[in-house]
Each structure stands twice: as structure tokens, then as C-alpha cells.
Measured scan of single mutants.
Amino acid sequence: MFYPNSPQTSPQLTQIPYGQQYAMMQRQIQQPYHPFATTEPQARLYPYHYQGPIQQEQGGFITQQSTAASPQYVQMRVTPVDQSIMSGYPNQTANGSSSSSFNYNIHPQQQQQQQQQQQQLRHHAMPVGSVPLQDDRYRKQLIVNYLAPDVTSTDLHELFSRFGELDGARIIYDKQTNMSKGYGFVYFCHAEDAKEAVERMSGYEFHGKWLKVGYSTNPLNIVPSNSSPYVHAGSRGAAG
């Protein structure tokens, strides 16, 4: 039997160049792979992502010199942007860049009308829970959420009447099932009393439920100042 490094198959040491006398086997001759043993700084910083320098080929596509990437890492192929796409944008300079302001050559009167329309939209648009300043009635009506099913309009009136005089209180019921929808409205005579009720009743436990109280901004629920107070009856038909 002959071994790869046996004296019968191995040459004389004098015939082997210096430095390879003890590297006779194939696994010894093959050098191990060192990912950080390279002179390129990109490979030292990113050993798993770097795959060699990027070269520009004919046709405008950018390719990489090395083989496919590892399945664990996804390499994105980048193509140059066609400058003709950006030619339609206004205020574009000769080098292809555009300024931040756009001039669509709008007539001054049209621009003024658009600004007025935007101001009107901001004036009428009102986020949930906010209180408008032009109508004091919005500051007097509250919406009470997360009410228990057994709470009546009379219970709601008695709960909030300790903060001040009320114009009314009612629970909203479903017309088909005649069941409470879980929320109601309270109408105060003074805005200061309503503000105190919002601050003190939010998070209050009532009939096993934690109440959420806020201003009601729905104009359909506003009680006119010259109208008669609501009837605080315990029956659902009268309260709904």
C-alpha cells in the first residue's frame, strides 16, 4: 500500500523548493479562506456584503464582478436614472436638479381664491374633541361614552347635575331594538360647569363602566337656548 506522503511516492527534499517541504498533501497545500485577509477597505468593513468592485458596462447597466450573493443577503441591482424623465418638472436647472418651490404660472386672482378656499376649509374642519370658538353652545354640550346598558337618562342627569344647572341629558337608544347604544349627551347651562365635568368625570366608574367624557361637536345635538329642557323620564321611549 502506498500513501500520498510515503517515501516511495514523495520526491527528495532537495528537489522541493524551500517553504513547501512540509506541504505535501493536497489539504495542506490548499490555503484556508480568510474573509478579512484583503487589501480593499470595503471588504474589511463589510465582509458579507462586499463582492468586489463595481464596473460600468456598455448599455448603462451596473453589474458586479463577483458571483451571486448568499441567500441570506439580498443584493440590489441599481440602474442609472434617465434624465429625460425629470425634464417635465418646473424650475429645473441645466444640471438636472430642481428647486423646492414650484411655479405653475397661476393667475394671481386664482391663487388668492385657492388660498381663501383653504382658509375656509381649515375654519370649518374641526378635529374630534375640539371646541370651536365662534359658538358658545359647543362648550356646553358633552358626550358621555361607555355607558352601561342599564343607565337611563334620569341617572345621567343626576350624575352630572352636581356640577351645575343642566339644560338636559339623554341616552341614545336603538330604534329597532330599543336598547341603549352605550353613549349619551349632557347639556349644561354654563360653559364653566361643562369644563369642570369634563375634567372630573373622564375615567369615572359608573355602573361598572369607566366613562369617557368630552365635548360634543355635532351641531345636530345642540340644544337651542330658547327651547324647553328635555324630559328626564326613566322610560326608554321618552328618553330616546
Rank of each mutant, 00 (worst) to 15 (best):
F2M: 03
F2Y: 12
P4R: 06
P4M: 06
P4H: 13
P4A: 10
N5I: 15
N5M: 09
N5P: 08
N5T: 08
N5R: 06
S6D: 06
P7W: 13
P7D: 07
Q8F: 15
T9K: 02
T9M: 14
S10L: 10
S10M: 13
Q12P: 03
Q12A: 10
Q12V: 08
L13T: 10
I16V: 08
P17D: 10
Y18H: 06
Y18S: 07
G19K: 07
G19H: 11
G19Y: 11
G19S: 08
Q20W: 15
Q20G: 05
Q20F: 14
Q21Y: 15
Q21H: 09
Y22G: 11
M24R: 05
M25H: 14
Q26V: 14
Q26S: 09
R27S: 10
R27F: 15
I29S: 06
I29P: 11
Q30G: 08
Q30L: 15
Q30R: 04
Q31M: 12
Q31E: 11
P32R: 03
Y33I: 12
Y33P: 09
F36P: 04
A37G: 06
T38F: 15
T39F: 12
E40K: 03
E40F: 10
P41H: 13
A43G: 05
A43W: 15
R44K: 04
R44T: 13
R44N: 06
L45F: 14
L45Y: 06
Y46K: 02
P47L: 15
Y48K: 02
Y48P: 05
H49K: 02
Y50I: 11
Y50D: 08
G52K: 04
P53W: 15
P53R: 04
P53L: 14
I54M: 10
I54R: 03
Q55P: 10
Q56P: 07
E57V: 14
Q58A: 07
G59D: 04
G60F: 15
G60T: 07
G60W: 15
G60Q: 07
F61H: 08
T63C: 12
T63S: 08
Q64K: 12
Q64S: 05
Q65W: 13
S66L: 14
S66W: 15
T67L: 11
T67D: 05
T67R: 09
A69H: 08
A69Q: 08
A69P: 08
Q72E: 07
Q72R: 07
Y73T: 03
Y73R: 03
V74R: 01
Q75K: 13
V78I: 13
V78R: 05
V78Y: 14
T79M: 09
P80V: 11
P80E: 06
V81Q: 05
D82C: 14
Q83T: 08
I85Q: 05
I85W: 15
I85N: 08
M86F: 08
M86Q: 03
S87E: 09
S87C: 15
G88S: 08
Y89S: 03
Y89H: 07
Y89N: 04
Y89F: 14
N91I: 13
N91D: 10
Q92E: 12
Q92K: 12
Q92I: 13
T93A: 08
T93C: 10
T93S: 09
T93N: 14
T93Y: 15
T93Q: 10
T93F: 12
A94P: 12
A94S: 08
N95M: 13
G96K: 04
G96I: 06
G96D: 06
S97K: 08
S98D: 11
S98F: 14
S98W: 15
S100Y: 10
S100K: 06
F102D: 03
F102E: 02
N103E: 11
N103K: 09
Y104I: 14
I106M: 10
P108I: 12
Q109N: 13
Q110V: 09
Q110C: 09
Q110F: 10
Q111F: 14
Q111C: 08
Q112Y: 14
Q113N: 12
Q113C: 07
Q114F: 13
Q114I: 13
Q114G: 12
Q115A: 08
Q118C: 10
Q119L: 11
Q119K: 03
L121S: 05
R122P: 07
R122K: 10
H123W: 14
H123L: 12
H123Y: 15
H124V: 10
H124C: 08
H124S: 04
A125I: 13
M126A: 05
M126V: 10
V128L: 07
V128F: 12
G129F: 15
S130L: 01
V131H: 10
V131Y: 14
V131W: 09
V131D: 07
P132L: 10
P132Q: 12
Q134A: 04
Q134C: 09
D136S: 04
D136H: 06
R137P: 04
R137I: 04
R137T: 01
R137A: 08
R139K: 12
L142H: 02
L142P: 02
I143T: 00
V144M: 09
N145Q: 00
Y146K: 00
L147S: 01
A148D: 02
P149V: 05
D150I: 04
D150K: 02
D150M: 14
D150T: 08
V151A: 05
T152S: 05
S153T: 08
D155Y: 08
D155H: 13
L156S: 09
L156N: 13
L156R: 09
E158R: 12
E158P: 14
L159P: 10
F160D: 02
F160R: 02
F160P: 04
R162F: 09
R162C: 13
F163D: 02
F163N: 03
F163T: 02
F163H: 02
G164R: 00
G164H: 03
G164K: 00
E165H: 12
E165S: 12
L166G: 03
L166N: 05
A169T: 10
A169K: 01
R170W: 00
R170H: 04
R170K: 06
I171Y: 06
I171K: 01
I171E: 01
I172C: 00
Y173K: 06
Y173T: 07
Y173D: 01
D174V: 01
K175G: 04
K175R: 14
K175S: 04
Q176K: 04
Q176I: 10
T177F: 08
T177L: 06
T177R: 10
N178T: 11
N178D: 14
M179T: 07
M179E: 06
S180M: 13
S180G: 03
G182T: 06
Y183F: 09
Y183A: 00
Y183C: 00
Y183N: 01
G184M: 00
G184V: 01
G184T: 03
G184F: 00
F185R: 00
F185C: 00
Y187I: 01
Y187H: 01
Y187K: 01
F188H: 01
F188M: 01
C189L: 09
H190Y: 10
H190A: 04
H190N: 11
A191Y: 06
A191K: 06
E192T: 11
D193N: 08
D193M: 06
D193C: 14
A194V: 00
K195V: 07
K195F: 12
K195C: 11
E196I: 12
E196Y: 04
A197G: 02
A197D: 01
E199L: 08
E199W: 08
R200I: 07
M201P: 02
M201C: 02
S202Q: 13
S202P: 09
S202I: 05
G203P: 01
Y204R: 05
Y204T: 05
Y204H: 06
Y204S: 05
Y204L: 07
E205W: 15
F206L: 07
H207S: 04
G208W: 01
K209P: 13
W210M: 02
L211K: 00
L211V: 03
L211Q: 00
K212Q: 02
K212A: 02
K212T: 01
K212D: 00
V213C: 06
G214C: 10
G214M: 02
Y215Q: 01
T217G: 01
T217A: 01
T217K: 06
N218P: 00
N218Y: 00
N221Y: 14
I222Y: 13
I222N: 04
I222W: 15
I222R: 09
V223N: 05
V223C: 06
V223W: 02
V223D: 02
P224S: 12
N226C: 10
N226R: 13
N226T: 08
S227Y: 13
S228L: 09
P229A: 15
Y230S: 07
V231A: 07
V231R: 10
H232S: 05
H232V: 05
A233I: 08
A233F: 10
G234L: 05
G234Q: 10
S235V: 03
R236Y: 01
R236L: 05
G237A: 04
A238M: 12
A238P: 13
A239G: 13
G240I: 14
